[in-house]
Amino acid sequence: MDKKLITEDGRRLDGRRFDELRPIKFQIGVLKNADGSAYVEWGRTKILVGVFGPRESHPKHLAMPDRCLIRARYHMAPFSVEERKSPAPSRREIELSKVIREALEPAIFVELFPRTTIDIFAEVLQADGSTRCAAISTAALALADAGIPMRDLVSSVAVAKVDGNLVLDVMDIEDKLGDSDMPLAMMPSKNLITLIQMDGLLTNEEFAKSVELAKKGCMEVYAKQKEALDSHFRIASKEEV
């Protein structure tokens, strides 16, 4: 546990400043079968998201008379981590699936599609920290790609406390050896939080600073999301009708 996470010259192990994101590259419309899809390389974290629906609910008894049912599955490939992970969903994956769904659902106009289901499948191909944040941000793009009406995109990032410093966009080793980890997701143009979790030890003041830093990070992720949508759909926007 004595490994230093911050170098002498105040940089993180991958050379980043405290408030710097890793390189993030979103791609949209990467799957043929899915109604919407997106892929991200977020540092070394790699996640593929496919969205299906809205479609008739199966089994039928799941259907809700006044809105659409949102289902999300966060799943890690067995080869995505150092030691092979069993492909059966773990308790962690079941919990993350729930919080990811709850982070995205506020953005979706569920009331427009009663008795139907939207399925969001996130497959983590390689995990290097902040996988839930990357999955949420990528899923928001896959939902937009599916043409599903949304209030806003959802952007997400994690903040950690390592060696006494608050750092943005947590990589695996910072999560494992750091003092705290706080993933946050928000609807950026609405300024509303849709996911907040935290573990570790923080004073109320440190917590408030973490939230501030996460918000700044989310706005940067948002800019990259818009950029990805813009470059994918720019051609189509030239269309004449």
Binding site: A107, M150, R151, M187
Partner: peptide, 10 residues
């Protein structure tokens, strides 16, 4: 006119 917009765009 006919600007490309994303969900949540004001």
């Amino acid at each position: 006119t006919r600007q490309l917009v994303v969900p949540g765009f004001l």
